[in-house]
Measured scan of single mutants.
Amino acid sequence: MQYKLVINGKTLKGETTTKAVDAETAEKAFKQYANDNGVDGVWTYDDATKTFTVTE
């Protein structure tokens, strides 16, 4: 399945996608991506759209 990440950071904004077997695996990949880019915020997930959002 394909999952999307929407980033609403202080210095980084945008979107990225990943393919993963489940939401938990996608979340780990997205959190690593956010961490690598210095984004630390509040996470939400919408199962209907398979979209994670992180807001600083």
Rank of each mutant, 00 (worst) to 15 (best):
D22N: 12
F30G: 00
V39Y: 06
D36Q: 10
T25W: 07
Y45H: 02
D40Q: 13
A26P: 01
K4L: 09
K31F: 07
G14H: 15
F30W: 02
V54Q: 00
T44E: 10
M1Q: 14
K31L: 09
L5F: 05
T17K: 06
A34R: 01
Q2F: 12
T49N: 09
E27Y: 11
G9P: 03
F52A: 00
G41V: 01
T17V: 09
N8H: 08
F52M: 02
W43A: 00
D47K: 13
V54S: 01
A26S: 03
F52Y: 06
A20T: 05
A23I: 12
T53Q: 05
T44R: 07
I7N: 01
T51H: 03
K50H: 12
A29Y: 15
T25F: 06
A48D: 11
I7A: 03
D36N: 10
L5Y: 01
Y3Q: 00
N8Q: 11
T17A: 07
T11H: 13
M1G: 11
L12N: 11
Y3N: 00
K31V: 08
V39F: 11
K31Q: 09
G14D: 13
F52T: 00
N35E: 13
G38H: 12
D22L: 04
D47I: 09
K4I: 13
V6A: 03
D46S: 06
T18G: 04
K19G: 07
T18W: 09
V42I: 12
T55D: 07
E15P: 04
V54Y: 02
Y33M: 05
D46H: 06
D36C: 06
L5S: 00
G14P: 05
D36T: 10
V6G: 02
D36I: 10
Q2Y: 10
V21D: 11
A23H: 10
F52C: 01
A20C: 05
F30V: 03
T44L: 07
G38P: 02
K28C: 05
W43Q: 01
G41W: 06
Y3C: 02
E24S: 11
A48W: 08
G14Q: 15
T55W: 08
A29L: 13
V39R: 02
M1N: 13
M1R: 09
K50V: 04
A20N: 03
T17P: 02
D22P: 00
K10N: 13
Y45V: 02
T17M: 12
T44D: 11
A48M: 11
T18C: 09
D22F: 04
D36F: 09
A26I: 02
V42A: 11
M1Y: 11
E24I: 15
K50M: 11
A34V: 10
D22M: 04
D47L: 07
K13F: 11
Y45W: 04
D36L: 10
A34D: 00
T17C: 07
V42R: 07
E27K: 12
F52R: 00
N37S: 09
G9S: 12
F30N: 00
D22R: 04
T16D: 03
N35I: 14
E56G: 05
A23K: 14
I7L: 09
K31Y: 06
E15W: 11
V42S: 09
D47A: 13
V39K: 02
K31R: 15
Y3A: 00
Y3L: 01
A20S: 06
L12I: 14
K28L: 11
M1E: 14
L12Q: 09
L12W: 14
F52S: 00
T51M: 04
A34L: 11
E27R: 12
E24Q: 14
Y3F: 12
Q2V: 13
D22G: 04
Y45Q: 01
T44W: 09
T25G: 09
T44F: 11
T51S: 04
G14Y: 15
D46R: 03
G38A: 06
D36G: 06
T49E: 07
T51A: 04
E15A: 06
G41L: 02
T11K: 10
T16C: 08
K10Y: 15
A23R: 14
K31S: 04
G41H: 02
A20G: 04
G9D: 03
Y3R: 00
K13P: 07
Y33T: 03
G41A: 02
K50N: 07
A48R: 10
V42E: 13
N37A: 15
Y33G: 01
E56T: 05
A34P: 00
G14K: 13
N37I: 09
A23C: 09
V42W: 11
D22S: 10
I7K: 01
L12M: 12
F30D: 00
V42Q: 10
V42K: 09
E56A: 06
Q32H: 08
T44M: 09
M1D: 14
T16R: 14
Q2R: 08
K28Y: 11
T11P: 05
V54G: 00
N37T: 07
N35R: 14
